[in-house]
Structure formats: C-alpha cells, structure tokens
Design a protein around this nucleic acid. Structure first.
Lengths: 192, 192
DNA sequence: GTCTATATAGAGATAGAC
DNA sequence: GTCTATCTCTATATAGAC
C-alpha cells in the first residue's frame, strides 16, 4: 500500500475536478490520467460514476461538518464562530488548483442530471449546514451580539445561500475579493 | 417563415435545457429532438456550440435587463421595486418546465468549462444586475425606507449572490418555499 | 435551410488475462 | 488491483445532395 492508497487518490482527484469543472465536465479518463492508472482501474474501485459521487459526497460532508462542529463547540464568541465558518468557504475557493466551489454548490447546479439518492445526500449536507448556522445565530442573539431581524432559521438559510452564490460569482469575476467583501457585509447584517 | 422561426425555436429550447440541465448536461441532439429538426440543421444556424451560447446569453441578458430597467424606472417605491426585482427570479424558477435557474447561475457553475468571451458576457450580466440593485438600494436609503448597514455596492452584490445561491438550493430542496422565505428575509434586512 | 451520411473523438462501462 | 482490449453510445462537427 502506497502512502496514499489508490482509492483515496481517486477520490481526491475526482473531488478537485468536480469542484472546478462539475460532474458533467469531468470524466473517468481525466481521473485516471491524473492518478496515473488506467480508466478500467478506476471502474474497479467505483464501478459506476454514481458510486464514486456518493462516496465523495459522504466523505466531503463528514469532513466538512466535523470541522464545522468543532467551530460550533469551541469557546469562541458567536461572531468569531461565524467568521471562522465563512472562512471555510473562502479557503475552499483558494485551495489547491484554485477556483473551487463548495461541492454542494456544483452538485446543486447539476441537480437535475444526478441520481435521486445523490441529490438527497447533497440536500442533507445543506440542511446540516443551515442547522449549524442557526445554532451560532441563536447563540449570538441570546448573548446580545446579534441583532438581525427575522427568524433565525430564515437567516441561517439566507447565509448559506449567499455563501453558495458568492462562490459561483467569485469564479465569474475571476477573483475572491468580492466574495470576501460579501462575507464582511453578511456579518455586518447579522450584527444589525 | 413559421409563426416562430427555427432560429428562435432553437434558442428557446436551448435556453430551457441549459437553465435546467446546464451546458454540459445538454446536447445538439436534445435540441433537435425537441424542435423537430435534424442535428445538422441546428449546426447550420449555430455552427459551434459556443456560437449558440453567446447568442443565448446576449438575448437573455438584453431581455432580462430590459425588464429590470423598466422596474427601476417605474414610479414604485424602492421596496416595491426590490420585491418586483426578486420576483423575476421566483418567476424563473417556476416557469415552463419548472426547476430553472437563472442562466447566469448555471453558466457561473460551469465557468471553468466555458470560453473566455462567454464568461465575460456572463460577468457583464452579473455586473449590470448589481448596478441596478445598487441604484434601487440607494434610492431607498435616500428616501429613508432602507436602513441596512454597510456600503450600497456591497449590499447589492450580496443580494445578487443570495438570489443566485437561493435558486440553486431551491432545486436541491425540491421546492420554491425556502427561496420565497429567503427573499422575505433579504427585504427585511434591507429595511433594517 | 434542411436533409442524409459520415468523420472523429470521447463518454461510461465490461470481459478476461496477468 | 491493474492491465489490454473492446463494446456501445453519444458528443461535436462537417460534406454535400436536394
């Protein structure tokens, strides 16, 4: 077994490709080229593309939510927590080969071309994020540092949607400056 | 010439397919099937896929911004203007075969697989929308009905990003209820 | 402008040898 | 697990007849 086993390498490469090009903009050939194996070998690990995608979303969701939960559970104040949470998306955008969106952003765009179970998993990831956001917003309200109007749940959903849309637009604009500005604006709105 | 000429039919069908499935989820075959002509005939109108896409974005942008400008120029109050503007995106989501995103949302996701000139046109569309939003927000501030904190330009960008992200998420959720709620929340934040 | 026919390339996927 | 080889389908695109 190499330092990183092939299955992991396949997932790593696939994730990078999908976050940048989308599911329908990437192929098994692209994966095998980068991993340095043959297309058939990729199929032996993930027979169908949907198998790969399901495994990928599960891994991505677990990893991401684990980090989010560590932020929520930390003893930072609510505002710092929100900043750190938003920072995860900024980090995604600039990581690796650059210009990556959140996996759920890309799969969200391609929803109508994906299997029902995959969409369900993406939905679960989004729901989980909104729940974590709602928790942080609730903490800030009770603590007295957040003063936004409207329901906590609605504000959480809005924040997640803004982050998703912001990542898309950052790539169209060709830079992360606008996305950074949006996050600043978002936090200002939350503080009220 | 039929009541609707073929070139227009091609653009109509292509737009519907792309707004739902994306550029990379749709083909010339799909278009020709629905228009009722042969694939080669589609190529005679738009030799390369990029020709079709450029024509499509131009038409979409012109039409959409024309409606937006009529809203901006109307004698409605700033809040009604914003509501009407957001209503355009809600209408898109529910129109025709349902589950459509804004064209720029879909092309934004696929940015890294598209030609530079096409991305530039998408960028222009987004910029134009943010400008119109900034105008409406500025009017509301001067009139005294909007009290959000932060720069007008930053708030305009945030609004557009939220609408784009909201359309994506609406499809993942399988309904427009959440998107409608988000627009309500957005307007509440603007009023401050 | 639309058609038939075709070129070329790439997709996802499987069989079977090593 | 990885390979070669192959299957089948579909993609974009063009040539040339009607």
């Amino acid at each position: 077994m190499s330092p990183v086993d092939t299955k992991t390498q396949i997932l790593d490469v696939a994730q990078d490709l999908i976050q940048r090009l989308g599911v329908n903009g990437m192929s098994y050939q692209d994966i095998s080229d980068r991993v340095g194996i043959r297309k058939a070998s990729v199929h032996s690990h993930f027979p169908k593309k949907d198998d790969l995608l399901l495994a990928l979303v599960e891994r991505y969701s677990d990893r991401f939510l684990r980090i989010v939960d560590s932020i929520v559970a930390s003893d930072d104040g609510p505002e710092v927590k929100l900043r750190r949470y938003c920072g995860l998306f900024e980090a995604t955008l600039s990581s690796g080969n650059q210009d990556k969106t959140c996996l759920s952003t890309m799969l969200g765009a391609e929803t109508l071309t994906l299997s029902a179970s995959l969409v369900e998993d993406v939905w679960g990831f989004c729901e989980a994020n909104e729940q974590r956001l709602a928790t942080m917003l609730e903490q800030g309200r009770q603590e007295g540092s957040f003063h936004f109007s409207g329901e906590v749940q609605a504000m959480a959903a809005l924040m997640f949607e803004t982050l998703q849309g912001g990542m898309l637009l950052a790539r169209v604009r060709g830079g992360a400056t606008g996305f950074h500005q949006t996050i600043g604006q978002l936090l200002q709105l939350v503080k009220g």
